[in-house]
Design a protein around this nucleic acid. Structure first.
Lengths: 366, 366
DNA sequence: GCTGGTTCTGGAAGCGCTCCCATAGATTTC
DNA sequence: GAAATCTATGGGAGCGCTTCCAGAACCAGC
């Protein structure tokens, strides 16, 4: 609809300003009914303590009676706060968004944001066009804060946000020296525990399928894998490391490569369940039994981990809690912009299933 | 902090009103730089055609030079449009949100909403408290339109929205006589096709595990199942129908019940993949082979359909397209509120996998 | 009873924008 | 060539709210 290109009203009638109920009563109505000035009503509603009990009560009564709801736009205009938080999800790769990881993070974020009476804006970025639009959008300061999930090492967005001075919290960090606030699961510890579990089960040729190394999660999980081996006195070798891309197809290909290169592999730690599912297919087609011949551990404890056969042992992150923590950090930062950045690592947990059972349960290898 | 009221001109004060960039240049700045009045600048920017080419060009140059971005709140205040669409997702049951169904619908919605330069608000509703908050929120008219996914038959929300006169589109309908606009997959046709596939493969004792009957999707899929049987000249019997709840555990229980009641069942049409996954477990523990003894079909073609063993034959809905259609319907309705409601049913597609292969491929039953 | 504080309150000034209205030019018509 | 008709423009009035400021009302204290 082209803005009322002039002639939608023939005469003095149809006056848009006097719409029936463009949102209901105004603060003036409340003030009038309560018998106070608008400014007093405003103070009463916003909880200024320089209002007498009597006035406050009168205002509250009037608010209730009129069903008054403040006009958000008017308030935003004068306070230059929007009470909105943007959640930005890049949706380049494989429908990342459908991973429980994202939905649970979002769920956690949503809880806290709603509790703070703020709005949550969901922004999916799929391509360059949307990316440009997003940049313009952020420059227009239409949100009080931003949450960024799935950041790549060279993503320009965090830097932009930093320049614009918009409070930002990342789900996961870009690198080891992250300057912004972030919350992440303990990827290093989680990976290490997973590999230690394999070592404890007697596996000796433990490979890993890593994620793309331009993502810090992938690097950290790989580091955790190496750490576990080193601690167990095993020197990690590069031919047991296969870098992939977090997709199922990538997991399959990587597993084939590993089998080719090191046929004696007896365990694989995959940096994601999706890749583990791919690896499982490759192992099946190579006629290796899981877990008897090769034990398999995934990461994320996503929905597919429970549905493969055998079900996947996997590292679970406290995803909803991560979401909540992100929101809390951000809300604090919005309320108090000069507050120093904060970074949080939350513990993970190994969920043991059939693809890599514990001590003794597995094949009597070694 | 003293507020430098108005006179930040000559004074050395550098007062807050002249904040660094509370959002950048204003329309007045643009007008001044372009050498026109504010109203002209406004018209130029909003594409009124009553502006001379010369003025328009000057304004555009000024906008570019200043990096001007309209203040949304100010615009919203005067137009009483928010340019925001709320997407409301009840998150009662099992992390529904993580189903690809939701994420793909959201993805489609997001594309269209972004293209229209509107904002997408995500509102998750988990409990009564959040529900009340939502009601208050909707009453405050802070969104131009609402998208409701996963509606139950007796959900009070659609009615509320109808009363408030807020443009609304549902993903799926509440019942057969839905008064609001909606977009849905062809549940009836999809179910019928699935069952016809089973019939075509020679199955004769085809059961169904239905969803909760207070959801129209569940009813419609059940109706499609019955329709297929009737068309094939088989009278649908109630002991082959087991109502469940769309959860995995529910699917397991339902399958057990069916096996108990009708041990000769040779195929099951499940109203969701999640329930099919549960049914699969029940069949396995009852030592029925899938598909040789019992063929299994799911619905949704969700991520788990590809990861069970055997992989599930399932009915795929054009989910992203549904999302896009929803958004388009809604945006139309926002632009033109008196436009009649519209309802759209989009076709589904049967994806055949091992759990219910086609003719001849399956066991030589019958 | 008057002064010197405290509270509390009402008036008023905008926040940045859209859109109505009146006016100044430009163009046409007779 | 003057009147009539358009068109583009500038002025200005708000949209509903917060917040500054000055003044009213109140309480002590001398």
């Amino acid at each position: 609809m082209k803005r009322g290109t002039t002639d939608d009203g023939p005469g003095p009638s149809a006056s848009p300003p006097a719409a029936p109920h463009p949102g209901g009563a105004t603060l003036d109505d409340v003030a009038a009914l309560a018998g106070v000035a608008r400014s007093t009503a405003s103070r009463a509603i916003n909880g200024s303590h320089e209002v007498s009990e009597k006035a406050r009560a009168a205002v509250q009564r009037a608010v209730a009676e009129l069903g008054y709801v403040p006009n958000h736009a008017a308030r935003a205009l004068v306070t230059s706060r929007t009470d909105a938080i943007a959640l930005i999800v890049p949706e380049t790769e494989t429908r990342l968004f459908s991973e429980p990881y994202f939905s649970d993070v979002i769920s956690g974020v949503s809880m806290e944001v709603a509790a703070a009476d703020m709005q949550l804006l969901l922004i999916l970025v799929r391509n360059e066009g949307e990316r440009r639009r997003l940049t313009a959008y952020l420059r227009s300061h239409r949100v009080d804060g931003v949450i960024l999930v799935s950041v790549h090492r060279d993503d320009p967005l965090p830097t932009l946000l930093e320049e614009l001075g918009i409070p930002t919290v990342l789900a996961g960090r870009r690198g080891e020296n992250e300057s912004l606030s972030y919350v992440a699961g303990d990827n290093h510890g989680g990976a290490r525990t997973a590999v230690q579990h394999l070592i404890g089960a007697g596996r000796t040729r433990i490979a890993t399928i890593a994620g793309p190394l331009d993502m810090e999660v992938a690097r950290t999980r790989l580091a955790g894998y190496r750490d576990a081996l080193v601690r167990a006195g095993q020197a990690p070798t590069d031919d047991l490391v296969q870098v992939s891309d977090f997709t199922e197809e990538g997991g399959r290909t990587a597993m084939h490569a590993l089998l080719q290169r090191s046929p004696d592999v007896d365990a694989v730690f995959c940096a994601s369940d999706v890749m583990a599912a791919g690896a499982l297919q490759a192992l099946r087609s190579a006629e290796r039994r899981v877990p008897e011949d090769v034990a398999l551990v995934g990461f994320d404890d996503s929905i597919i981990a429970r549905h493969t056969t055998p079900a996947l042992t996997s590292v679970r992150q406290p995803v909803e809690e991560i979401g909540r923590a992100i929101a809390r950090l951000l809300l604090d930062q919005v309320a108090e912009p000069k507050r120093p950045r904060r970074q949080l690592i939350l513990p993970t947990e190994l969920v043991v299933r059939q693809s890599a059972p514990g001590h003794g349960t597995s094949a009597a290898k070694s």
